[in-house]
Every structure is written in C-alpha cells, then in structure tokens.
C-alpha cells in the first residue's frame, strides 16, 4: 500500500525525516503523550466520517484546535466542548513557544496530531515545529492520507481508491489511543 515518497514529491526537506507507521503504533505513540493536541483542518469536511473521527479523539480528552473552516463540522455535529478555532499559522506560532499558555490556559502541549490539513500547509507547519520547537521537544504525528516527512511519524500516501482502507486505519487509530 502507498508509496514512501512525500505526497508532494519534491517536499524533501533534509536529513531528518519522519517514519511511516501503522495506526496502532501511532495510537500508542499518542497514548504516551502527557498533553496532546489534535490540530484539525478543513479537509475533514469532505466526509462526515472524518469529523466523527476527530470527535472520537476529542472525547478521549484530547483538545481540538479547529483550523481553516473545519469549525463548521464540529458545530454541525454539536460537539464544541473542547474545540477551539485557531488559524493554523497563528497556532503554530504559539506552539513553538514553550511559555505559551495553551488553548485552556494550562500550558503548551508536548504532542501535536495533524489531521485534515492541506498537505503543503501542514508540511510547512510541521517543519517549523521540527526546527524550532525543540526545547522541550514537541513530538508531532500526521494521521492524514499523506506521507509527511516533517512529522516524526505519519501514515503513508493513500490514494482515493483506497479510501475505505484509510477509514479503517483511522478507526484502528482511535481504538489504540488509550486515555
């Protein structure tokens, strides 16, 4: 399945590139986080299923930063309890600062999950965190249908004909997050 090259094929930043991992491994990795954050973009709106996955993760106590216009999906589903609109550029600007108070005022996060974000936008924001959110180290994963070398861990590229498989991966991921 998939191809182990960046979804935008020339998006090879340098020697430090993240690995491809199956959903169970990424789920365990998220479980190990002390204070994780789910960052959600507008691509979740292409199918209710993807909004529901975000809500499932949110229900595990992981706050959600709704970027782009993804907020719509949460409002429609009447799930806004721990969902905060934030522009992704501005959010990443905060995430790189260890002294940021976080969305809830309780401090910055140690782990960020990128989901449903336009590939090249996410790639650049992951690059910022990789290069500048290093002390303390902020761990990043992508659970999009793209391989993101700037994330520490990512799914592989998944083409539309394998959409069902991708949905299964997301279900497995949610199951494997233990909180």
């Amino acid at each position: 399945m998939g191809i182990e090259i960046p979804f935008d094929v020339a998006s090879i930043a340098g020697p430090e590139i993240g690995g491809i991992a199956p959903p169970e491994v990424i789920g365990c990795y998220i479980t190990s986080a002390r204070r994780p954050l789910l960052v959600v973009g507008s691509e979740i709106l292409r199918d209710n299923f993807f909004v529901e996955i975000a809500i499932e993760i949110g229900k595990k106590g992981i706050p959600i930063a709704a970027t782009g216009h993804s907020m719509r999906g949460f409002v429609e589903k009447k799930y806004t309890e721990n969902v905060y609109y934030y522009n992704l550029h501005e959010l990443t600007n905060c995430l790189r600062d260890p002294n940021w108070k976080g969305l809830d005022g309780a401090g910055n996060y140690d782990f960020v999950i990128f989901y449903g974000i336009i590939y090249y936008y996410a790639s650049q924001m992951l690059s910022c965190l990789k290069n500048f959110a290093t002390d303390p180290l902020m761990r990043t994963v992508s659970i999009d249908r793209y391989y993101h070398p700037n994330a520490r861990m990512s799914f592989t590229n998944i083409m539309p004909r394998m959409e069902d498989e991708y949905k299964d991966m997301l279900k497995k991921l949610v199951e494997s997050i233990k909180r």
């Binding site: 020697p15 990443t92 650049q124 924001m125 910022c128 990789k130």
Partner: peptide, 11 residues
C-alpha cells in the same frame, strides 16, 4: 510581529 519561520529546506 516576530518573524515566524517554516523552512522549506533544512539545509
């Protein structure tokens, strides 16, 4: 407005 950087190349 502090400069924010997202390198497109790490080298």
């Amino acid at each position: 407005y502090k400069p924010f950087y997202a390198p497109i190349c790490d080298m």
